[in-house]
Simulated scan of single mutants.
Amino acid sequence: MIDAIRYLVDNGVKWRAMPCDFPPWPRVYAFFTRRRDTGLVAELHDRLREAVRWAEGRNEEPSAAVVDSQSVKADATVSHVSRGFDAGKKKINGRRRHLLTDTLGLLLAVLVTPASTTDRDAARLLLSEAKKHFRRLARVWADGGYTGHLTDWTTQHLEVVLDIVRRGDDVQGFQVLPRRWVVERSFAWLLRSRRLVRDDERRTDTSEVVVLWSMSMLMSRRLAAQRRRRPGPVRAA
């Protein structure tokens, strides 16, 4: 079942197009929805993240994070209630993924909203929920889209310092900005999963769970690679 879901997320196929090598797609979909509704996917993801942070010599619970959002086109199956229009540079009609990552780029929280939702409004929900799970969280870096009343609100209500990393006015073209590049790399990791190139899910919570599956697969591969590189015990001659 897990291999079937991994195939679905990696290759972006429709449920009904599941290869015959896997169990029938209704059984795989039922397995997927049960673990979505019971929170088991989130629990698996969180345990993997703690293992990766521990392997990197970090505390299992982060004290700093980076927040950003990304708008993606939505499939025709996505209802008008859960989709919107992003009037920014890309003019996208779809949904927006809001990510909160640690300084390693590992996912701490995800929120999927209509693309018309502003970063500041979504950040209130995202940061409030994250603070409940990560008591050590004290500083968050963000881009200019989070300026305004949000900086004061996070300090007063969450006791979190929101640092705005601004792009220089005299800079032209691409520029790697401190801290902000971390979450941008996380978005690039997610887009390796073809299921996340666009939003095909009818429900926003399903979209969030697909993001968790993608990050869980990435972290499991990283842990497996670390174990392969770890030297074995030295045997006496």
Rank of each mutant, 00 (worst) to 15 (best):
T113K: 11
D170T: 12
F31K: 03
D86W: 05
R195F: 11
L107Q: 00
D169P: 02
L125Y: 04
R166C: 10
A87Q: 13
E159R: 14
D205C: 05
L100A: 03
Y29C: 09
G57V: 07
L126Q: 00
V165G: 11
V41I: 15
F174L: 04
D143W: 01
F32L: 10
D102W: 08
R228I: 15
V28F: 10
F31T: 09
L137I: 01
V160S: 05
A64D: 09
V67P: 03
Y146L: 10
E129G: 06
N59V: 08
V13P: 04
R135L: 11
L191A: 14
P114N: 12
R203I: 01
F174C: 00
A17G: 02
P231L: 09
L177C: 09
T38I: 02
R230K: 15
R230I: 02
W141I: 04
S216C: 02
C20W: 14
F174E: 06
F174W: 13
D3F: 04
E208N: 06
A74Q: 05
D170F: 02
D46Y: 05
K14G: 13
D46F: 03
H149A: 15
S116D: 09
R198T: 07
A74T: 13
A236Y: 12
S79T: 15
R185F: 04
F31M: 12
R221D: 09
P114V: 07
R222C: 02
Y7D: 03
R36Y: 02
R230V: 06
D46L: 07
R49W: 07
T77R: 11
E61R: 10
T206R: 07
V197S: 07
L106A: 05
A76P: 00
R202A: 05
D119W: 04
R235S: 10
R16I: 09
R228Y: 08
R167S: 14
T154A: 14
K89G: 05
V165L: 08
V209A: 10
L108K: 00
E61I: 13
R139C: 10
T204S: 10
R35S: 04
G12H: 05
R35G: 12
N11H: 15
S79W: 01
H149Y: 09
T155Y: 09
S216D: 01
I164K: 04
L8W: 12
D37G: 01
A188F: 01
N11C: 11
W25T: 08
